[in-house]
Design a protein around this nucleic acid. Sequence first.
DNA 1: CTCTTTCGTTAGAAGTTGTAACTCACCAGG
DNA 2: CCTGGTGAGTTACAACTTCTAACGAAAGAG
Lengths: 216, 216
Amino acid sequence: MTEAGAKTPRERYRAQVRTEVKEHAWEQIATAGASALSLNAIAKRMGMSGPALYRYFAGRDELITELVTDAYRSLADTFRAASGTGADVAALGHALRGWALEDPQRYLLIYGTPVPGYHAPDDVTAISSEILATLLDACAALSPDSPATPLDAHLEDHRDWADGHSAQPAALRRALAFWTRLHGVLSLELAGHFRGMGIDPAQLFAAELDELSRPD
Amino acid sequence: MTEAGAKTPRERYRAQVRTEVKEHAWEQIATAGASALSLNAIAKRMGMSGPALYRYFAGRDELITELVTDAYRSLADTFRAASGTGADVAALGHALRGWALEDPQRYLLIYGTPVPGYHAPDDVTAISSEILATLLDACAALSPDSPATPLDAHLEDHRDWADGHSAQPAALRRALAFWTRLHGVLSLELAGHFRGMGIDPAQLFAAELDELSRPD
DNA sequence: CTCTTTCGTTAGAAGTTGTAACTCACCAGG
DNA sequence: CCTGGTGAGTTACAACTTCTAACGAAAGAG
């Protein structure tokens, strides 16, 4: 038994198998959804027999948890990348839509219908606060101060989620609107609710994002 | 074999069992989610043994399909009731939120993450167009005509989903915003994404609804 | 009273998650 | 170089699930 460091060949092999399992899991989720994720199917596709995977993941829940945190980390990375070229709201919006359309099930895994008995691990709160921070940066640069709305008083009282970010209430309001409105369009699009009614979701998304990017 | 009409005691018994099965299914969905719906558990809780239910439903998918159309019909009913007292947007918004919070899993069943291989039956398109019609009525009474946005051109070309409703493009725009924005807040609230960040979703929802109810 | 339809049952196939026990290979220490 | 310990992968099994098939029994129709 050696200390941590991913040095021993055993641990390297173990990590390699874990990532390979997760790759197959993503592939399977993308085609059949998260609820149809089968440990046995992954094992067979990897040439191993069922219970072998339990050496690497304690169960289906742990595997899904890992996938969720990976998805959050991926979104945080794309947000950081989009924010690197100048943190404006429009760029973040386009990055969000591109990321969501790139793998719809990955988006739905973290923002879609949750499994009732499932609780997200503590890791994701850290990552999601990082996502929120870049969003707040972009929003703070856009709305210096605007007339107070009834929401502002409530947001002033409960701004702990902003995690110490020095943003005006109007910026918090804009960040929340960014989140809820774009998620509204995106989730309905990914669920296929616009299919068959002829509307182009891209234009709907663009219109909402345009209103969100307009300096108040 | 008699003709339709729900007259024979056999058909009445059959219908009664079907509704009882659906009641147990709703109860089970409300506590464990739609993905954990178990035909066997329902049968056992009704005092029958597993495969007996296959006399009443061809399978799990048909049962879920029935529940989905029931949910749509229930939403259409509440919309019609809320619209009966004067079709204003705010009343529809409050009715939507009340209906969603009354049974979150029912809302998520029709607006949440879809099962990838699943296609909604044709019945729901009729019901959802009824829902859209009452929403368009309320929106048409609010926005007579406003400056054209880039979206309006697209909506003029693809207004088949409005189903012959004589509404200005601005009303279509408002109805779509009603749908996407309120769904954005509601779905994130029901998924529990606001829990732990101290925000009151009701105030967020109210703020969005207030902006949607404001005559442009 | 008989005949037919339908209901509910048990048996079983093909899946799933997950546990237990066993074999085997590898890696390190003496 | 040899031996022991650790961990990986295997089968076997239990307890589920959906769903099909075949059978007995009950109930309505003529």
